[in-house]
């Protein structure tokens, strides 16, 4: 794996696999609370008329939204895979003493933490029927702000680990962990609280089933990307059984 092109192609392949896996989680898991939330939304239909159309005069049918949603996740998987491969190719200090598989897995886990888990903790995902259309741009800005902050933390942790190269490994790891925890705490405290209230007609069970499904799906996408990309780029993963036996002997 010595050319950018070979890495990029594997990033696309890994993104496709992770995207399909995440889309299947969506179909089988996340769609259940989404259906429940849409039922809540439909129950208030007479009072409706605001922006979003799930009801009669819908722009896209429900069936198309289910398929489109899955397709969207797969497209995002491929696009993120491409960005991931580029970041991997550029990373000159990210766990340089590890195997390509370990590096990829660690990068996938870090990206999950930065662009999925951290925003999920601060601004938990909301199903349909929650969210004021008036505040969507504000909420989007806050969400993207946390994503950027998360990526800066990952980059900073990698930078700090390199700066502390002279320290012993336990000291280095402890220092980096403390710095990450402190930075995450600052982000969680500094960003304003989510602006929307949860409507009274949204059952808490549906809300949290949706949020956990969403988190599972994000983990599938990003950690899956790290695993599959690692498998595709690590020569050790393609070692034949004969070679493995020879290596053991």
């Amino acid at each position: 794996m010595t050319t950018y092109k070979s890495l990029a192609l594997r990033g696309i392949g890994a993104g496709l696999v992770a995207g399909v896996a995440s889309a299947l989680v969506q179909l089988l898991v996340t769609e259940i609370p989404i259906r429940a939330a849409l039922a809540v939304e439909e129950a208030r239909e007479p009072a409706a008329g605001e922006g979003h159309s799930h009801g009669e005069e819908e722009l896209v049918s429900r069936g198309a939204q289910v398929v489109g949603g899955m397709l969207g996740v797969i497209i995002v998987g491929i696009a993120v895979g491409l960005v991931f491969a580029t970041a991997y190719a550029l990373s000159k200090r990210w766990f340089v003493d590890r195997t390509p598989f370990s590096r990829s897995l660690a990068l996938g886990a870090a990206v999950f933490g930065a662009v999925a888990l951290l925003p999920w903790l601060k601004y938990p995902a909301n199903p349909p029927a929650v969210g004021d259309p008036e505040t969507v741009n504000y909420r989007t800005a806050l969400y993207l702000g946390v994503v950027v902050a998360g990526l800066v933390i990952v980059w900073g942790a990698s930078w700090l680990a390199e700066r502390l190269q002279a320290q012993s490994q336990p000291v280095r790891v402890t220092a980096v962990l403390l710095a990450v925890v402190a930075a995450v705490a600052v982000v969680l405290l500094a960003f304003p609280a989510p602006p929307d209230t949860i409507p009274a007609d949204m059952p808490v069970a549906v809300l949290w089933q949706f949020r956990l499904s969403s988190l599972a799906q994000l983990a599938t996408l990003y950690v899956g990307l790290g695993v599959v990309f690692g498998l595709l780029i690590d020569p050790a993963a393609r070692r034949t059984k004969a070679a493995a036996k020879a290596a053991v002997a």
């Binding site: 889309a23 969506q26 996340t30 769609e31 989404i34 159309s53 819908e58 722009l59 896209v60 198309a64 939204q65 289910v66 489109g68 949603g69 899955m70 397709l71 969207g72 996740v73 995002v76 999925a116 925003p119 999920w120 601004y123 938990p124 995902a125 909301n126 199903p127 349909p128 989007t140 969400y143 949706f210 499904s213 969403s214 988190l215 799906q217 994000l218 996408l221």
Partner: peptide, 12 residues
């Protein structure tokens, strides 16, 4: 609208 479910599901 087409990507609606995916956007919700990915927490955006």
């Amino acid at each position: 609208e087409f990507f609606h479910d995916g956007r919700h599901a990915l927490g955006v």
